[in-house]
Design a protein around this nucleic acid. Structure first.
Lengths: 303, 303
DNA sequence: TCACTTCATTCTGTTTTTGAGAACGAAAAG
DNA sequence: CTTTTCGTTCTCAAAAACAGAATGAAGTGA
């Protein structure tokens, strides 16, 4: 016994206005018709949605529950109609990519390279935190997520994470410092800019420090790789990050790499969702990944 | 021109399975009927949702957009039917209260006091962070939020915050310490348990410290008041919190109040949303608030 | 108190929408 | 080159949604 969405819609309208007559008016149908449709919904659900007190309607408890769902359902529905009513339908294919906001821009650009400058394709790039992005992916508002962590899918959310690149993480600092020894020497007593506590580079770094009994002095915690790049360039502090982030500054000689951290990597994952209609562009992007992306220079392209 | 939700439902089924025939089977209608209904939806929206390539169906870009909305809409719808199908409809009124997870339990209990032990009413108490709670309130999944901050409503979310109580905040510590002077003396050089950085007690406290040039040593940042109570009781550290949180421990003599912090208060707000059908229980709760709650002892009841 | 209005329900016959079946066509399979 | 599969279109039958009239219950006002 299926839910009748038109009945639910009528119910929603009545529950919103609080009056059957007014709702009937705004729906341009007679109140008798409306009354009948509401009745049918109640019969099909097996519960009264309104409590009839004389000529008054009051939402029953079941009605309140149904109303809360209806509210969501028709809010979405009206958004959809508004979207279509506004005209302006895209005639090109759109690929919607979500990227964890803190991800290296260079990396994102490198990954999307094959699709840039394509006439027949529009790219929509959305930055947010992973939870929000996963929500959108599940709602099919995104085709792919770029993240620095894998996620476990389940029955309800058949997410699929695949590793698409892996980069070393180094100690980066102003050029020309006279420094010797391994990383633990380099770190000792130094003020560092590090990724925020949720970042998995940071977690690996903290573990490394703990293991080697290092207690580096944190000058700043920065979540955003682009911000980190600016701070490192402009403050003179040392920083923990993948060298690729400051590729330009290293080439220009402003910054230098003072050694990779053993066992610390930034990993990049592409998270997709199983769906009936896969866009060709997405397939292309992901096949590129498997075939070339891991073996070719991780970023090098934008020279 | 209204959106036909049954057409959209059919479209959704077809888009999910990818095949008109299979979808028709699972819907128990003929494929000719299904084909016609999809056509009508396309006509009413003014855009093709599928691209017909020979006998294949491919989602068009417009179709992908519509699908993402449909996915949300019918997920909700199926949740609703499942809820009703599972039987077990409540016959009592339910009042759904959301409380910011970090709020004092004593306070919550005191506020809800008039409704406890009522035969004709079921209480649903949900703890979460404010964003999530506001989302639920907007979706009418909650009737009221208890929070320690006011929120600004707008056109779309006609939230209404009202101050329902205000409590002093003190320095709490183990009983029997020989301490003199005002709060700045008490704080000097002491290890403190303080609320987390998002908490507005903490913010007021930080401002106070800054103003008085105090740099107290943070032993722990704890978001949850209940947790804070346990830690203060069991670690011997001093803590910044409203005395009411540890009322029991103070009565038993384990902890003592070493002075209120001037100008620092914990404020409690009730956030509701304007709606057509207000439950009597909610009205009772809020009128209680305005009439008595601010003037009577903030908590004192559970002795 | 007694009209009078307002608001919701139920019944009946009409209109609109939905759906099955047949005929057709285009692509894949054998 | 046939056969099967899959989607579209057409026609007519079945199902539903609907309006209008009759009814009843509750407020309103002289």
């Amino acid at each position: 016994m299926k839910l009748n969405y038109h009945h639910l819609y009528y119910f929603w309208k009545v529950a919103r206005t609080g009056h059957l007559t007014r709702a009937a008016d705004s729906l341009h149908i007679s109140q008798s018709a409306l009354s009948g449709q509401i009745r049918k919904l109640e019969e099909s659900l097996g519960h009264d949605l309104f409590i009839r007190e004389g000529r008054r309607l009051k939402l029953s408890e079941a009605g309140r529950m149904a109303f809360s769902y209806a509210e969501e359902i028709f809010r979405q529905g009206e958004e959809l109609t508004a979207l279509f009513a506004s005209g302006a339908q895209p005639n090109r294919e759109i690929l919607r990519i979500g990227a964890v906001a803190t991800l290296s821009r260079n990396f994102q650009e490198g990954f999307l390279q094959p699709l840039l400058n394509r006439e027949d394709l529009e790219l929509s790039l959305q930055s947010s935190h992973i939870d929000e992005l996963l929500r959108r992916l599940s709602a099919h508002r995104l085709d792919l997520i770029l993240a620095n962590q894998a996620v476990q899918g389940d029955e309800q959310n058949p997410w699929r994470s695949r590793l698409i690149a892996k980069q070393p993480v180094s100690i980066i600092g102003p050029r020309g410092m006279d420094i010797q020894g391994d990383f633990s020497e380099v770190l000792r007593g130094r003020s560092l800019i590090v990724p925020g506590p949720d970042n998995n580079i940071r977690q690996a770094f903290d573990q490394l420090c703990e293991y080697h009994r290092l207690r580096p002095n944190i000058a700043a915690e920065v979540d955003d790789m682009a911000m980190m790049r600016l701070l490192t360039r402009d403050t003179g502090h040392f920083a923990i990050m993948p060298p690729v982030v400051v590729r330009d500054e290293m080439k220009s000689g402003a910054l230098a790499d003072y050694g990779a951290l053993p066992g610390v990597f930034e990993e990049f994952y592409a998270i997709s969702i199983r769906r009936q209609f896969e866009t060709p562009a997405l397939r292309e992007l992901l096949s590129q990944t498997e075939d070339n992306f891991l073996t070719r220079t991780p970023i090098g392209h934008s020279d």
